[in-house]
Design a protein around this nucleic acid. Sequence first.
DNA 1: TCTAGTGATGACAGCGACTGACGTCAGGGT
DNA 2: ACCCTGACGTCAGTCGCTGTCATCACTAGA
Lengths: 189, 189
Amino acid sequence: MGRWQPGAAQRLQQAALELFDRQGFDGTTAAEIAEAAGLTQRTFFRHFRDKRDVLFFGQEEFVRAFRAGIDAAPAGTAPMDLVAASLASAATFFPDERRPYSRLRQAVIDGNPTLQERERHKLAELATAVAATLRDRGIGEPAATLAAESGATVFDVAFAQWIRPDEHRSLAEVAADVLAELRDLGIAR
Amino acid sequence: MGRWQPGAAQRLQQAALELFDRQGFDGTTAAEIAEAAGLTQRTFFRHFRDKRDVLFFGQEEFVRAFRAGIDAAPAGTAPMDLVAASLASAATFFPDERRPYSRLRQAVIDGNPTLQERERHKLAELATAVAATLRDRGIGEPAATLAAESGATVFDVAFAQWIRPDEHRSLAEVAADVLAELRDLGIAR
DNA sequence: TCTAGTGATGACAGCGACTGACGTCAGGGT
DNA sequence: ACCCTGACGTCAGTCGCTGTCATCACTAGA
């Protein structure tokens, strides 16, 4: 056993979410979050690049889920079908049990512009990673980037819908529907 | 004649771009920019919400160009054709004379992650505004958001291409080509 | 069993972004 | 002359974020 409790980042994230929810993002200092997790401000910034980052802990695995969906598809699959596969794979990261947590987290993000900014950035990073994966499969530019950005947009729209109070479908179902709508748009001239 | 020179925001933006180019974004303080423009740090923050914002001065007119393109289209135009119209309209905001300036500005942005973050945010704001305009024309959700986000993506990709050293086509031409590629993607199953 | 190395953490000091309160100086209306 | 308003300056902060160094538990090797 170490001198410190394990999972410092996890504890910081949970403490941050609770404090942000209770007293707002701006009304919460990094030192306060650290104290709630039994740590100091300095340690907080050793785990996260900045105060906002604490809400985006664990996004790498999420990106890996997108890539895994593409990697598992058979050779010769069309770009937008690869995107469909990556969406289906990523949706498994958000089972229905996680919906309440996602709603709370999103409410905090929606309440602060700088957090929305960071969220957009993370979505853009996701699109960049997916585009790279598509390029690895031989898809050229700008097709790879366009397909990847489209996938990110579909995920974003689907996630927002999935979180709504009156929504009960799974994220996978919602995402499939949104993707279908996008395809209809592309054909309509 | 007032006590102060007019166009403080303009002067601040120009001074900022020069200083960022010469000594980097992080290596330039807000007080320094203000001083170069004959003002003080406090005045800088009365014109701009934060240090990054100085590089995005005048984006409202840019957004208006997008909306104008949609408003000018005849009734019954399909969503993606409205997007095409808005792109064509917005492209007039970037005549070839502006290319050197755009290149310099983009180089500064590319050199700093937080500036990229802000740029993504501005692009998202643009998409939100375009989606609202589409909704005003009777287009429902999620079609309006999907079309608007697609338009923003096309603009982003086209702009990046337009800025390249070996690119000589106009932004309107590049954007039309990228949009055509996106449409090809949508049909491919 | 002693000891030096390692990795995570805490304490301290400091920079710079950003803000609120308040004072100052024109010009325009009355 | 009068005040009001709008743009700016001054002052005194708060807080995000960082560099530096000391500290403590654990571990490998003698």
